[in-house]
Every structure is written in structure tokens, then in C-alpha cells.
């Protein structure tokens, strides 16, 4: 049997951290997998690419917009040079490409554990209202807008303050029409159309991370409440919780959509009611929190993708704290130089 060689992305462990470092750390801590890990980066200064204790070798990747052939060419090189046989894309923008290329990846011997395109699209922000209803959750009033006229109408209907959001990333809290227009342009410039206008729900943010087995079941899940967030609403302190209604909503989601792979439910708890904000089709940056409380979801995902028989892991203690902190890593220019000049460390 060939050794396990896992490629993973999202190694931008900055103030807006990607999930890659948490995923790599989780896989390192699994007792059985012992993978060689390849970091897939888009910038030579992604911190994870320089963390030699997590990533054995880092490779520059073509941007997803470069398309299928550039992507598959790079993956083929990794198969030939490193024996790559498993990939975990951790960024929203990469997922459609990986999903579209699933047959080619399989033919190259690279396994993934991802939803199919229909599942991926169903949890898109523009479909969340219907999905929330099916899961028995509430959904803040949300309007999809594609031009300034629709933005104006949506703002009047939803009322200020409200959120102007991109289809993939970015959310701006705005308090007046002028700020809404500015946020709209910023979102369009960065992420394109459509733009979403969403009512702001005041409450406590509770999130759930899990892995679906693709047959309607769960391979594990952990819920946490955000206690401290950064200016970009990224969790910097949190606590594990056991919220039965949220856990049941996740189970309904998995059963209804036969979801395969990682996911995160982002919700607001207000007056006992759960309002669904987003479903992310990947691990969140806080995924290591789940691993540290005994639910190693990245390891579960890899084992499921390899076709191993595994039991769901759902037992964890409520009341465990998560504290993210900043830290400095000092290194020489070797990896930076090699990534820049040769495309790999």
C-alpha cells in the first residue's frame, strides 16, 4: 500500500485565517494516518507554507480562475513527484474546481471527500432561505441583488442596520444607504455578483462543524459559541457547547442532502430561536478546536475518503475554551525564495 500523501490548502494563517493549518495540525495528531503533507499555496508568504512541523513541502498553485487544465497539470506534477493521493481543498473558491475535476482526480489516483456540484450549489447563500425552512431553522430576511436599483429596494425592505454580503466571502455591516452603496461596490469588485442584503440579527453566534458521510449520516460534529471575534468577525475566543436543537438541525441537513464532506453551520441564537446565517462547504478555521476536544474531523474525513470503516465521533465536553493568539515565526528566506523562484519549497 502506498504511503498517504495529503495535499491541503488554506494555509493563510493571518488575521483572516484559512482552515489549512488547523486541518494539518489535526492530521498530524491522528495516531493512525501518519501522512506526508503537501501545502498548496497561492502566495509565498502564507505562513502555513513555512511551518515545517506541519507541512513537509509547499507548492504554489495556479489560481482557480486559471481553469481546469492548469489545475490538473499542477496536480499531475504532484502525483508524479510526491505520490499525492489525497486532497483537501479548504477555500470556498477552490471547491467548484475540485468538484468539477473529481473524475480526473480519481483517474490520477487522488482521492477527495467532497459534496457533488448539486449539493454544493444548494447551500449557496441565495438558496439558504429554503434550506433553513427545511431544517426547521429561521433565516434573517435576505435579498439577492444584482444592481443598484435592486440594492435600494432591498435596503428599504430589510431596513438598517443590515449586512451587505458577497456570494462567497465578505460581509459589511452598514447603517445607511450611502454606506450600503459603498459596501456593494466593494463586494462586487472583490467577489463579483450576486450581492446579498441581509437583515442583522442581534444574538449570540453559535456554530457547528461536522463531516457528513455522504449517505445521510454524520461522522462527527462539535458546536461552539463565539466569545470574542476580530474586526472581521473571525473567532478569537470560543467555548464548546452542546446545543441539541443545533445538533438536530445538522443531522437533518445531512439526512436531507446526503452531504459528503466537511461543513460548518453558522447560526445566531436569539430568544431560543436559531437563525441560520450560512452553511460553509468546508472546514472552518477553528476546526482544530474540535480535534482538541476529541473529535478529529479532518482525520475522519480522510479515513472516509480512503474507504476505511469508521465510527462517528460525537462525544466531547461542553465548556472547553478556545483562545486564538498571535505568534511570530522567524525563519530564513529559503522557503520564500524557493516558492517564488521554483514554485515549491
Amino acid at each position: 500500500m502506498n504511503p498517504l500523501v495529503v495535499a491541503l490548502s488554506g494555509l493563510n494563517a493571518t488575521d483572516n485565517p484559512g482552515p489549512g493549518v488547523g486541518v494539518a495540525r489535526s492530521l498530524r495528531e491522528d495516531k493512525g494516518l501518519d501522512p506526508k503533507m503537501l501545502g498548496l499555496v497561492y502566495d509565498a508568504l502564507e505562513p502555513g507554507a513555512h511551518m515545517e512541523w506541519l507541512v513537509d513541502r509547499a507548492y504554489m498553485m495556479p489560481y482557480p480562475l486559471a481553469g481546469k487544465s492548469a489545475f490538473l497539470e499542477r496536480i499531475s506534477q504532484l502525483v508524479a513527484q510526491e505520490g499525492l493521493n489525497f486532497a483537501i481543498p479548504n477555500l470556498d473558491l477552490e471547491l467548484p474546481l475540485y468538484i468539477r475535476c473529481a473524475p480526473e482526480l480519481e483517474a490520477l489516483g487522488v482521492k477527495t471527500f467532497l459534496p457533488d456540484m448539486a449539493q454544493f450549489k444548494l447551500r449557496g447563500k441565495e438558496h439558504l432561505g429554503q434550506l433553513a425552512e427545511e431544517l426547521g431553522l429561521h433565516m434573517p430576511q435576505t435579498k439577492v441583488v444584482n444592481n443598484l436599483e435592486e440594492l435600494k429596494e432591498a435596503c428599504e425592505e430589510v431596513g438598517f442596520p443590515l449586512l451587505v454580503k458577497g456570494a462567497f466571502y465578505s460581509a459589511h455591516l452598514v447603517h445607511n444607504p450611502l454606506a450600503a452603496v459603498a459596501a456593494y461596490h466593494e463586494v462586487v469588485t472583490q467577489w463579483g455578483y450576486p450581492v446579498l442584503v441581509q437583515a442583522r440579527i442581534e444574538g449570540e453566534e453559535i456554530n457547528l462543524v461536522g463531516v457528513g458521510d455522504g449517505k445521510g449520516g454524520s461522522l462527527g460534529q462539535v458546536s461552539a459559541k463565539k466569545l470574542v471575534v476580530s474586526s472581521q468577525n473571525k473567532i478569537f475566543a470560543g467555548v464548546t457547547i452542546r446545543h441539541e436543537a443545533l445538533a438536530k438541525a445538522a443531522e437533518r441537513f445531512l439526512a436531507r442532502y446526503q452531504w459528503r464532506g466537511a461543513f460548518e453551520l453558522e447560526c445566531i441564537l436569539k430568544d431560543e430561536e436559531i437563525h441560520m446565517i450560512e452553511i460553509n462547504p468546508r472546514f472552518p478555521a477553528w476546526v482544530y478546536f474540535a480535534t482538541a476536544v476529541g473529535v478529529n474531523l479532518p482525520a475522519q474525513l480522510v479515513k472516509a475518503g480512503l474507504g476505511l470503516e469508521i465510527e462517528p465521533v460525537k462525544d466531547y465536553e461542553a465548556g472547553k475554551l478556545f483562545l486564538r493568539y498571535t505568534y511570530e515565526m522567524i525563519t530564513d528566506m529559503t522557503h520564500f525564495k524557493n516558492l517564488t523562484l521554483h514554485g515549491h519549497t
Binding site: 449570540e204 453559535i206 459559541k225 457547547i241 461542553a318 465548556g319
Partner: peptide, 17 residues
């Protein structure tokens, strides 16, 4: 609520303390 003898209480459902 998880309540200890020093009066610290944690609600495992909401995460409030």
C-alpha cells in the same frame, strides 16, 4: 447549569457563564 462551589456557573447549551 454546571455550578461549582465558588459560584461559577456554565450553561452548556448556550455557552454563557
Amino acid at each position: 447549569l454546571a455550578l461549582n462551589q465558588e459560584g461559577f456557573a456554565f450553561d452548556p447549551l448556550t455557552g454563557n457563564s
